[in-house]
Amino acid sequence: MNTIDIKINERSLKVLPGITILQACRDNGIDILTMCHLKGLSDVGACRLCLVEIEGINKLLSACTTRVASNMVIRTDTEKIKRYQRITTELFFAERNHVCSVCVANGNCELQELGYKVGMDHIRYPFLFPECKVDTSHQYFVMDHNRCIMCTRCVRACSEVEGAFNWDVKNRGFQVRVISDFDTPWGESITCTSCGKCLQACPTGALWSKDVVQGQLEKHPEMITELVEKRKLLLT
């Protein structure tokens, strides 16, 4: 099999051409922080946590959307990258209303875990306190925009795995929101199949089932990956 030579953190590696830097790291046990990446879904580079330094390129590139090239020299662990990861995490917290203590996902949240991983003890930016709606119109599920970090994992799970195309994104910048159908209440959706895949894909307490209470939410995003892998087996 054809392989190409790359270097990650001074380690010489032989990897398959065409894979992403993120995949090369994961295959070789190199830890890299991600939030919008979910194995099985396409990558969009939304969260900017997997930024890496590549020799010869004067800006940081996201590992999940950059493919390896021959003789690429990559660094994933520099002080600059760590500083950016901390900034990104703090901005996630400052942008919307992430009140862990009253959140269903408390103790079982990828954003909380991320904060611990980057060593965030406080947030250096002023909080925006945007007015965010909570959509409880669906029979079984709730969408709480206060907790959404716009990773769009739900949007991709809905379109790529379920094929329902219920979720989409409106606006730009800090007014960006996930919407159901044409920005109508989730309960009135004619495309939603109530499959619950978006709930499992969501890393925070933005999407949850009505039968859970504060701090009781359990998520299994790996079920999306499993489903995609199993479908591939069916096709072969």
Binding site: N97, D121, H122
Partner: peptide, 18 residues
């Protein structure tokens, strides 16, 4: 020393800010 989420990031007390 700021003790607890309210002192550090307003937490529940800040939920009235919007």
């Amino acid at each position: 020393v700021a003790l607890g989420d309210c002192a550090v990031m307003t937490n529940v007390t800040g939920m009235r800010n919007y």
